[in-house]
Design a protein around this nucleic acid. Sequence first.
RNA 1: GUGAGUGUAGCUCAGUUUGGUAGAGCGACAGGUUGUGGCCCUGUUGGCCGCGGGUUCAAGUCCCGUCACUCACCCCA
Length: 422
Amino acid sequence: MPYQRVKGTRDILPPESAQWVYLEQFIRDFFRRNNYKEIRTPAFEFTELFVRGIGRDTDIVSKEMYTFLDKGGHSLTLKPELTAPVIRAYLQNDLAQQGAVTKLYYIDALFRQERPQKGRLRQFHQFGFEIIGSPYPEADAEVIQTMAALYQSLGIQKMEIRLNSIGSRESRANYLTVLRTALQPFTAEFCPTCQERLQKNILRLFDCKVATCQEILNQQAPSILNYLSAEDTHHFQEVCHLLDISQVVYTIDTKLVRGLDYYTRTTFEITSTLLGSQDAICGGGRYDHLVEDLGGKPTPAVGVASGIERLLLVLNQQGALSIPQPELVYVVTLSEEARAIGFKLLTFLREKGLNAEMDFLRRSLKAQLREADRNQAHWVIILGDDELQRQAYLLKNMRTGEQQNLAFDTPVNTLAEILKRD
RNA sequence: GUGAGUGUAGCUCAGUUUGGUAGAGCGACAGGUUGUGGCCCUGUUGGCCGCGGGUUCAAGUCCCGUCACUCACCCCA
């Protein structure tokens, strides 16, 4: 094997590639109907954008980025996340001028140097969308409701929406102090990783899967919802209310804390039991300071990103992806003269919008019919010596086995009509 | 970065315990039918047994190393 794929990358081959095309088209149609516009940003950005945007101490920035120096000595990074580049583009192109609220969606490839596992790759793909400019709960609720609606219309069956508020930066700082104090006495009882998290990033404790750690948290950790400011609480209640009246089913999970520094107030994710250990198909939330952190005017925003590989895993688990193929007409030719006539016929049929194919290996009739069958051809047009004699195509319906003759001088329109009938 | 599991035909996998001529199913190709697909029957094709070293008369099998893949941890979509 002379060359191999880089670890954590994948070739997307037929027939799987058809699923990708289907899903991408589905997403674009969906957003067109929901008045979001597509944005495409470059594959790489200046490293500093991610350091500022995502946070120096996050795992993404501290150990997962593909960073390199270009020939000018600039540090560049393959994008590991899409919100920061979108906000960069929003600021650089002054999209705020075009309206009070900006609604954008994207479908893109991302890169993170992690150990691959089920539902996690080094090059992976997300689609997502952002509402930039609104501080109000309607925006939060729309993001959640819209993503849920998209999944639903895609046919995702079992999903769980988990919702939380991590408050404003002030509320959160306050809560962290309380949390640290509350858990201090139990330091020794936590698992080794949690003891580390206790020091470095105490919110991450909530992610721990060890039963004893969860036990302590359940009994000792105060809920963040009790430490939100009045405004935070009101905002969260409004979001919940809007979801309730639009009949979006969710559960409040006070342990849901997201890993990127920029989140404020609303955080949520949607999980599926059909995935492995990495069970989130999307995650998002509000980020009211990112725009100003990246040098813009204070601008509230909220958004979400969904993993395309994970979505496809779920859809395939459900067996929900049946992608209709256009009917195929297979032209069988059995001599040099027939091949020329058949080739010309192909181009006519294609001009009439038919999916037409012929054999390029000059094989036997039997082999060509087998190939037509493998391709699930509806019709076969046979062109051999007999047909040249008679000056007529032999049309065979592969579903019924019925055959009929059709004179060469039959108008192509008439021929196309017959082939388009069931 | 850590741990566990797995690498044998295009694909799915036996064979490894106890060293002795590399197998099956599916697929592909062909014949049965000199112009008729699918079903059936027959045949053919197809392997540096991941790679390197060691032990041995002899290694797919035992030992050491290495690489890759998978799942999990960390964290995230």
